[in-house]
Amino acid sequence: MTLLRLPSATAPSRPAARTRTRRGRTERRPRVLVAVTALFFALLYLPIAVVTLFSFNSKKSLTVFGGFSLRWYRAFVHDDVLVSSLGASLRISLVAMSGSVVLGAALALGLVRCRTRLGSLAGLIMLVPLITPEIVTGVASMLLFKGVGVDLSTGTVMLAEITFSISYVTVILRSRIAALNPEVEEAAMDLGATRWQAVRLVTLPALLPAVLASAVLIFALVFDDFVLAYFTTGVDPQPLSVRIYSAIRFGVQPTINAVGTLMLAGSIALIALALFIPRLFGRRGGLDILSGE
């Protein structure tokens, strides 16, 4: 049994039809529970709504809405520092995504199929980033780079983000690979394919939706990541998250509302996309990508 048991959100063995009819007979929705849930949703979306609303404010206030304006978006586009940060964040996410998906997918394949002692050791190492808080990984990566005499830069952020993301890719893909029937690969080999060809031509295509979904998810996670980037970035250009952090620490800056709204919209779109990619390929979708096992 795995370390953190996050069971699949779509457990197959639930007697759905029966529960529905029987519950209909015995209970109604308790009002208190529904009220708590509604309040929860309201508080969950309130901060997002506030940031979005005030990004369109014509005044420089966070409490008084003066009327609709695109003033802060214009300010963002003309802010060279923020724009170069956006570029840096995009580059970092792209590189971290490519690197970690390749390394993570290979690792996941190996972990599922390999029964040697090295395999279980690799499985343990893979878990370390998942149980280490980000501040620790951040401090550790910074010390490592400084220790070997590498100046912190966008490149060091990329390396650190790859390291951290491999585990996510592996966790997401591992359950998918385990669900594949290995005999299909065996069949391909009986038909004359080598092991590599079987992996490349049979297993990888079957994994494609999950690989794409994990790639999109990692892109969004890296783009939004703050702690690791904060510890491993150089001075210029800094990733967008780090810029936002310095900005909000020193008081109200409405431009940040505009940047924040764009980032929220972007990552919400990407994460929603990651959830529904499996559906595009005609598979049962979604949420289990977030829970892994």
Binding site: L103, G104, A106, L107, L109, G110, L111, R113, C114, R115, T116, L118, G119, L121, A122, I125, M126, V128, P129, T132, V136, T137, V139, A140, S141, L143, L144, G147, L159, A160, I162, T163, I166, S167, T170, R195, W196, V199
Partner: peptide, 27 residues
């Protein structure tokens, strides 16, 4: 098969050992 799987695992594991485990030891 085991050899192929080991080769597949190797880059990711080496990468993580080099960056993560080494850096934690450094701390």
């Amino acid at each position: 098969g085991d050899r192929v799987w080991t080769w597949l695992m190797l880059p990711g594991t080496v990468w993580m050992t080099g960056f993560l485990i080494a850096s934690l030891v450094l701390v």
